[in-house]
Amino acid sequence: MTTPIVEVEGISKTFGKTVRALDNVSLEFQPGIIYGLLGPNGAGKTTLIRVLTTLLRPEAGRAMVAGVDVLADPKAARQKIGLAGQFAAVDGYLTGRENVQMVGRLYGLPMAEATARADEVLGRIGLADAADRQVKTYSGGMQRRLDLAASLVGRPEVLFLDEPTTGIDPRSRIDVWELISDLVDGGTTVLLTTQYLDEADQLADRIAVIDEGRLISEGTSDDLKETVGGAVIELSVPADRQDETMEALRRICQAEPLLHEVTREITVPAPDGARTLTEVVRALDAASITPDDIGLHKPSLDDVFLSLTGRPAEADAGDEAAANGSNQRRRRRRP
């Protein structure tokens, strides 16, 4: 194993006296991967990114990025990183190209190279046609993509992306995913935050789940799903048969089933997979309960979050996702 490219040890950050934004967070990962930071609103994702990008000093802990101690030598760290923050930091009265060029020059590139790099990243991110327009004429999603372009211009070793696809339409979102994957193929390491479980699932090689400032789980998507068990039964039954069903599931699966408040869907780990499902179907049949819907799934990150925190992730993230009109979490889960 090579040395980790990012190494976080015991980082704590409190705002004011009471808001514990980060509580003794430790994690590390290898170069050349996409590392996903997953958590609901207020979990501390942005705070951790701000610490790692030298914008915020924690009161305790240590952080190494690309071999540089971020807290002891922030200047050297800045040479190695790129940041696209949660909100686009672009100048409306400059053109797209001028925005990216300026960041390139501030990375120390000579004018000609900054221009060439700007054109390259703008083309890559699908903004070549808009490069000469003032950014105030860009849509919100275009501005976010421009912000992403600006973070790439210095060829950073480690790229920090705070919710890179929030506010981006579904098609462009796939483009951004592809771009991020390409970057990683080219040797860049990416740490990104997301509230979207499917995004972390599809994009990230490793995932850290944080909630209320604490790291509650860490590993590959499969590792995390293991924590829930091999498989999950998901079913819905008429409301008047709900209690009976829950009771039966408790007995058969030897675990507490979870009832989704809104959708009335019940999920429960199935220790023996298909065999457990068969048993459940028989039991329901014997009690003459006809499920509206029943199925066996590999656990998704929804289930992981649910089992780790005892509440669904989307209760927190739902408002924003709905407001965006896109990026809705799949209700039907992938097998």
């Binding site: 923050g85 909100f87 960041v103 501030l106």
Partner: peptide, 13 residues
Amino acid sequence: SKGVIDRFRSLPM
């Protein structure tokens, strides 16, 4: 307020 300073502060300038 627009976050531009955050970007500047994260750059090796």
